[in-house]
């Protein structure tokens, strides 16, 4: 139901720090219709060309101030992922995505206040790295 909120088109790119590619990242809106504390993000998953990224390599920020691992996010009850403000999902991987075309799938799953099951949104985009 919220698939269209996931993985904003044109946002996936390699990340360069101190002259080195440390990984890649993409932006996404929330799979819900309101903002929630980060502890209510049930999980985030990334798959590239059919291969799942290890959970421990994923980092998440709702605002580019604080970055968290998915495990750390489970305890973050005071910082919110606001509705209408894209969060950034980063995958730490030396060298990032290789040149060429990749099928990148992002899944975002949130727990909600009254719906008994978590709300999952998926989006796969073709990403070209030049």
């Amino acid at each position: 139901m919220f698939d269209n909120n996931v993985f904003i088109e044109g946002t996936c790119k390699n990340v360069v720090e101190n002259g080195e590619i440390i990984g890649y990242e993409m932006e996404t809106n929330i799979t819900y219709y309101r903002g929630i504390p980060l502890s209510m993000v049930n999980f985030v998953a990334v798959e590239v060309d059919g291969i799942k990224v290890p959970e421990e390599d994923i980092r998440f920020t709702p605002d580019h101030i604080d970055w968290f691992t998915l495990k750390e996010m489970e305890t973050v009850a005071t910082i919110k992922w606001e509705y209408g403000i894209p969060a950034t999902v980063r995958v730490l991987q030396k060298g990032g995505l290789s040149k060429g075309s990749h099928e990148v799938k992002l899944t975002v799953c949130t727990r909600t206040a009254y719906i008994p099951f978590p709300l999952e949104g998926n989006m796969t985009r073709t990403v070209i790295i030049e």
Binding site: M40, T75, R111, A113
Partner: peptide
């Protein structure tokens, strides 16, 4: 308003 009774996973 919403009551986040499931604020935590655990």
């Amino acid at each position: 308003i919403f009551l986040n009774t499931n604020l935590y996973k655990s």
